[in-house]
């Protein structure tokens, strides 16, 4: 199951991570928590595969990162969305909505 959702959502995962980071800068664990919360536990992300996604987005320049102290004063890597990432999120969101709408229309056809 996990394997399937991982494959299916490979592209979508990037979008979700960007969305989560657009709300506030946070570390990997935070992103995982946020995704689970926002999707009301529907999206069970394989937590480990979050990190390749984060590194991929950083390489593309959509996010950047720095090490900072976390809540209980431990060092953690914080990711922040860049202006370029914000623009990408916007256009990706749009096309996702178009896509989702189209799929929905097809499925609703009786």
């Amino acid at each position: 199951m996990k394997q399937d959702s991982h494959d299916l959502l490979q592209g979508t995962l990037d979008l979700l991570v960007l969305k989560a980071l657009s709300l506030a800068p946070m570390h990997g664990w935070g992103v995982a928590q946020r995704l689970q919360l926002l999707s009301r536990e529907v999206l069970q992300v394989n937590q480990g595969s979050l990190y390749p996604a984060l590194h991929r987005l950083e390489r593309k320049g959509f996010i950047d990162s720095e090490w900072a102290a976390s809540e209980n004063n431990r060092r953690a890597r914080y990711y922040r969305i860049t202006p370029k990432g914000a623009r990408a999120l916007e256009s990706e969101t749009e096309s996702w909505e178009r896509f989702a709408g189209a799929v929905a229309r097809v499925l609703q056809t009786t």
Binding site: H27, G28, E58, R59, K60, G61, W67, R75, A76, R77
Partner: peptide
Amino acid sequence: MSWLKTAGRAFFFRRKVEAELDDEMRFHL
């Protein structure tokens, strides 16, 4: 450019990057 930066960092500071990757995942766990 950012690719070059990441790649350059990864290449020239391989040990550091590896250590960071370790730290990041340990923090998560």
